[in-house]
Design a protein around this nucleic acid. Structure first.
Lengths: 193, 193
DNA sequence: CGCATAATCCTGACAGTGTAAAGATATGAG
DNA sequence: CTCATATCTTTACACTGTCAGGATTATGCG
C-alpha cells in the first residue's frame, strides 16, 4: 500500500465529509472549495470531477443535510404519546438540529448557492415537507395549520441559529424544552379550544 | 464643473445606495465590493476610506436595513384599532419587508458578514427589538409571548423570503393577509381564551 | 495475460475578489 | 499663498473558482 495512492478510493465521500467540516467552521459565506480539497488532501481541482463546481458540492451537501434534518426530527419524535405530542416533538427536533448544525441549517434554508432544482436535493426536501404535512394531517389540521406549525418551528430555529433569541440562551435545557413545547402547542389545530 | 471631479462630494451615500442595488441583485453571497465601486463610478479601493472593508460597508448597510425594517413595521401598524390589532399588523409588516427586500432581510437576520457589535447597528437592532417587546407589553404579555410573536412573524417572513411557502405564493394579496393575521393571532397572549 | 480505453487526479493558467501601500489631487485652515 | 489633510487612484499581492491539458491508475475487452 503506497502512502499516497494516486487514486483516493472514495474521494467523493471524503470530499463531502471535508465540506461538512469546512461549512461548520467557516459557514456558507466563508466556504472555500480549495480549502475543502486541502482538507481531503487532494489538489484544488480534484472536486470538479465528482461535483462539477462548488454549487454541485453544496447541492450534494444540502441533500445530505436535509436527510440529517429529517433524521433529527424522527429521533425527536421517538416515543411520542399521541399525534399532538409528536408534532410538538418535531418542533423540538427542528430546534435541536438548528443548534447542533447552525451552518448546515443555514445552507439548506437560507442559502442560494445549492441548486434546489436538483433531483436528489428536491427529493430530500420533499420528504421533510411531506412528513410535516403528515404530522398535521394526523391532527386533522388544514393547510393553514401546516403553515402555522412550520412557521413557528422554523422561526424559533432560525432565530436560535442566528443567536438572536438571547432570552433562550440563558435558559437550562429543561426550561428551553418546556418553552418550545408551549410555543408549538399554541399553533396546533384545536389549541386551547 | 468638471465631468468627473476627483472628489465625489458625497461618495459615502452614493456607495451605500450602490451597495443596496448590488445586494438586491446579487444577494449577500454574490455581493462584490469592487462591483459596488464600479456602480458608483469610482475606483475599487475608494470604499476603503469610508467603510474600511467590506464588513464595514455591510455593517452600515445593515444598520440602514434595520431602520427601514422598523419603518415598514411602523407604516403597517398605522391605524391599528387596538394593541392586539397592532401586534398583528406588525407581523404583516414583518412579512411585507421580507417580500419587498428579501436580500436585505437575509443580510440583517441570517448573515455573519456585518459586525453586529457595531454601535450604530446594535442601536438600530435594539430599537426594533424594544418595539417588539413594547407591542407585547401593551397586551399584558410575558417573555414567552415576546418569543411567540417574534418566532411566528420571523418564521413566516423567512420562509417567504426563501420562497419555501409555496402554498402562500398562489394566494391573492387579500388571502395572504388574512392567513398571516390568523397565524399571528394564534400566538398572542390570551388567544382563544 | 496484454492492451486500449476510460476514469481519476494533478499542474498550470486565467479572470475575479478583498485588502494594503504608495502616489495623485483637491480641500481647507492658518 | 502654503501646506497639512482628506479623498481618490494606481499598483501589487494573496486568495478564490474554473478551465485546459497532462499524468497516473483502474477497467474491460481481446
Amino acid at each position: 500500500m503506497a502512502e499516497k495512492p494516486y487514486h483516493h478510493g472514495d474521494l467523493r465521500a471524503a470530499l463531502l465529509a471535508a465540506a461538512e467540516s469546512e461549512l461548520a467552521e467557516k459557514g456558507v459565506e466563508g466556504f472555500s472549495l480549495r480549502s475543502v480539497a486541502k482538507r481531503a488532501g487532494v489538489s484544488h481541482a480534484a472536486p470538479a470531477h465528482h461535483f462539477g463546481d462548488v454549487k454541485g458540492l453544496l447541492t450534494a451537501l444540502s441533500a445530505e443535510g436535509f436527510r440529517r434534518f429529517q433524521a433529527t426530527l424522527d429521533a425527536s419524535e421517538e416515543g411520542a404519546l399521541d399525534a399532538r405530542d409528536r408534532a410538538i416533538r418535531a418542533g423540538e427536533g427542528y430546534l435541536t438540529f438548528a443548534l447542533a448544525r447552525p451552518t448546515l441549517f443555514r445552507l439548506i434554508f437560507s442559502s442560494k448557492k445549492p441548486d434546489f432544482g436538483d433531483a436528489d436535493l428536491m427529493a430530500a426536501g420533499d420528504t421533510a415537507y411531506c412528513h410535516l404535512v403528515w404530522l398535521v394531517e394526523e391532527l386533522g389540521g388544514s393547510t393553514a395549520d401546516v403553515a402555522a406549525l412550520w412557521a413557528m418551528s422554523h422561526g424559533i430555529a432560525d432565530l436560535a441559529a442566528g443567536q438572536r433569541l438571547r432570552m433562550m440562551e440563558n435558559l437550562t435545557e429543561a426550561e428551553r424544552k418546556a418553552m418550545v413545547r408551549e410555543l408549538i402547542a399554541r399553533v396546533l389545530p384545536g389549541a386551547r379550544g
